[in-house]
Design a protein around this nucleic acid. Structure first.
Lengths: 136, 136
DNA sequence: CGTTAGGGCTAGGGTTAC
DNA sequence: TGTAACCCTAGCCCTAAC
């Protein structure tokens, strides 16, 4: 059909990483419309960016230090926690190896439609976002 | 980002359907302020109601396509019977049409006395009026 | 200013191709 | 068998119109 399974090139992946550094995670459409990346990623959709970023992080976590995660899958019992009004607590991964750009983007203080003002302000102590662009 | 995505429960969906039956579509704020549903839908906004109703109708129209597609893809092993104890009475309809609740609600005209309101008024936590809108 | 209708986006699960 | 790429959709957000 029209989808011959288009593998990601190094340039595309680099552009994606740079775009996440610049705009933060979740801003796939924004990255796509950024003139700096629109050329390289012209063949990709915003969903593609999201999926690729997911794959990158999955592999990165596995290479790091978190392997006991799939073991908790496929539980014969019902892992279904359907609460009505109760909020389920979600544990956030500890710092270190997990590449999490979300706090970066949201750390600017504006919860709603903020701007990537001081994106790099937080990028010092933890320093987990290195990677960024293998070299461009 | 404090909302990790709040999935609709069966109770909420039932309340929404009942509310549409009672007040008609488009009266989201009215449904929300109805004492019969305000408790269940307290965490939802009028926009949420609108969006959910849209999703419900979209999925209800299914059947023209993709249904057979996914039906065959249905995993051979899916012993999922873990409903929350609430047994929904599903009315099977050979016709897969969208059940328009608007005529139903309006069909009573001006129920000065003894309208269908009394029937729906006793809506509590249990699901009991799935009758309409629950195709396939 | 509040509400609704509709378009658009994202997150996550699921599926296909390799 | 495992993994990357892709598909599907529920829930949410944004905007225009009223």
């Amino acid at each position: 059909m029209g989808a011959p399974k288009q593998k990601w090139t190094a340039e595309e992946e680099a552009a994606l990483k740079a775009g996440v550094l610049k705009h933060g995670t979740g801003k796939w459409r924004t990255i796509l419309m950024d003139p700096d990346f629109s050329a390289v990623l012209s063949l990709r959709s915003n969903v593609d960016l999201k999926d690729k970023w997911r794959n990158i992080n999955v592999t990165a976590i596995w290479g790091s230090r978190q392997k006991a995660k799939l073991a908790l899958k496929r539980s014969p019992l019902t892992p279904k926690h359907e609460e009505n009004g109760k909020a389920l607590s979600v544990v956030v991964q500890s710092n270190e190896e997990v590449v999490d750009a979300k706090p970066l983007a949201m750390a600017s203080g504006t919860p709603r439609n903020g701007g990537p003002k001081d994106l790099l302000a937080r990028l010092d102590g933890s320093t987990q976002m290195i990677l960024a662009v293998c070299s461009s």
